[in-house]
Design a protein around this nucleic acid. Sequence first.
DNA 1: GAGTGGTCTAGACCACAAA
DNA 2: TTGTGGTCTAGACCACTCC
Lengths: 234, 234
Amino acid sequence: MSVAQTLDQRIREDIERNIRSGAWRPGDRIPFEHELVAEYGCARATVSKALTALSRAGLIERRRKAGSFVAHPHVQSAVLDVPDIGSVIAARGDAYRFELLKRGERKHAAGDPLEAAGAMLTIEGVHHAAGEPFGHEQRLISLAMVPQARDVDFTAEAPGSWLLGHVPWSEARHRIAAVPADARLARLLGIAPGTACLQLERWTWQLGKEVTWVRQTFPGDRYDLVAQFTPQSR
Amino acid sequence: MSVAQTLDQRIREDIERNIRSGAWRPGDRIPFEHELVAEYGCARATVSKALTALSRAGLIERRRKAGSFVAHPHVQSAVLDVPDIGSVIAARGDAYRFELLKRGERKHAAGDPLEAAGAMLTIEGVHHAAGEPFGHEQRLISLAMVPQARDVDFTAEAPGSWLLGHVPWSEARHRIAAVPADARLARLLGIAPGTACLQLERWTWQLGKEVTWVRQTFPGDRYDLVAQFTPQSR
DNA sequence: GAGTGGTCTAGACCACAAA
DNA sequence: TTGTGGTCTAGACCACTCC
């Protein structure tokens, strides 16, 4: 199953799994570096590399003389999030529906936004709010990471919503741009070609491995993104 | 500035300075690891740590057998950061200029995006990259919070750059949308009316008090926003 | 084949905070 | 004072890729 992996990545993922599973709670001390060195039979620099990465990711906090501890999640800063579009629309008081346009399965191809996936599920659909098109979605799901997605009926539940409920993610990346609607998109969304649209691409990882990529496109007057944050010090 | 600095940080900053200043252009090969080892008289692991950090930050690209190269920057910046547009453009290797269109001072008015400010500085200008318009900026600065802004020459330094260097901030909020360019904006940026543009509004606070508001508008094909993040618990 | 970066080892000294 | 993490050294082997 697991392909070639560096030792520091393996240590990092082992610890990350313990934290995300809840086995290690916020505030718990994780093993000392020298204990991990003994456990993995490796050099201290290798353990330190893994812990440094976890610290930079905000999962642990390291204190001299005391050890390393599972970080208390930040309470204050509402930053970016992976939203469930259905919930957003429902919260607005509109009826929500996901229209599945295409569903397929294929091998990874050169130029795919997911880099290292084997077989992939491809999904295209349109989100509707109050009976009107709200946004378009093109998605890839790694079947190596999420084999159970093969058996899901995405006419009943939007893929984003299903993934949020069934697959944990540990890291995500957004790319946001403004694009004009091309002819096909304009027809699907019921807007004029060239209309300014907000395009959101999102890559999602679980323990360092790609889970899904999605490109969502919304007419500019129907969707805003908001982020509130504090300066980064790390 | 800080005196205590680790060697790998110093190496990293030296290289970063060479890139941002334009001394090393995108595509240029930077010194091999063994050359940097000789230059700094340190171990290869220390050089490698610095280069790994630069690679993760997207400033360089490393290729086996070939060496490390100054990355061709995507024009993108993080959603969770307050970027200095001048630095972003300089990092891309283009000449940067801020064109001040209007500057004024007035009392707070109803409907202003800054709510509780008294006297405010109003600034409008255009960011230029390589001699071409890159983005438009409309800004308000609270003179109650930043009285020294009265005496700054914003034809010499863009207001965003000056503020980042002189006024600390403790909280910021972004609102991102896609909008079509209106006639005036299209003229200022040299684009067709209706062109899809990325519009970024940012409110910045210091210790709970509003410092500045800015609305920046970029043609959609010239600017991306990127955010990388991990889940928030609850 | 040759030379690069990627990773790792088995030490070392230091700064700092906890005991 | 003690033990932890932070940084660094001087090697090593490997994988990849350019020649």
